[in-house]
């Protein structure tokens, strides 16, 4: 028979990861590929796509917090990303990142298809 202390410890050890796993199912930010993001019909819904920068010397700055670059996702699909967010990010920051997560949504209008990002997460 386990004593009360062992019961408590067992319950805590099982409970903590269970809550974290369950919470992860309710995140409002689904992780997708560019192809999946393009199929998302609700354009107000944010999605996250993670990938690698195509060419570090091809990052174009369009102002203080505006950048354009190309990202290739885990499926190998290359997409133009236009970042317009609150955080100031430099071309060097993006160029030096080993992996980039972009948060926003796919757009397709007269300027052509692109991923409109409002947040960038850069991995060293």
């Amino acid at each position: 028979m386990m004593n009360r202390r062992t019961w408590y410890i067992t319950a805590i050890v099982l409970f903590l990861p269970l809550v974290l796993w369950y919470a992860s199912r309710f995140s409002d930010l689904p992780e997708m590929t560019f192809a999946e993001a393009a199929l998302e019909e609700d354009h107000t819904k944010r999605v996250a796509v993670t990938g690698k920068l195509v060419a570090a010397n091809n990052v174009v700055s369009g102002g203080e917090s505006s950048l354009t670059f190309y990202l290739v996702d885990d499926d190998g699909k290359k997409e133009r990303v236009v970042y317009e967010g609150k955080e100031k990010v430099t071309t060097t920051d993006v160029g030096e990142a080993s992996e980039i997560s972009v948060v926003g949504h796919m757009c397709s209008d007269k300027e052509g298809p692109r991923f409109h990002a409002k947040q960038l997460y850069l991995s060293e």
Binding site: F15, L16, V19, L20, Y22, A23, R25, F26, S27, D28, L29, A48, S101, V103, Q119, Y121, S123
Partner: peptide, 28 residues
């Protein structure tokens, strides 16, 4: 309290593990 803590702290916890900032839906 722990469940509410995890849900509330989600936008802080995610960037700590290199994930984009996200929040938890009310249904959680």
């Amino acid at each position: 309290a722990f469940i509410v803590f995890v849900g509330t702290s989600w936008p802080i916890l995610m960037p700590l593990i290199g994930k984009p900032k996200a929040k938890i839906d009310m249904s959680f």
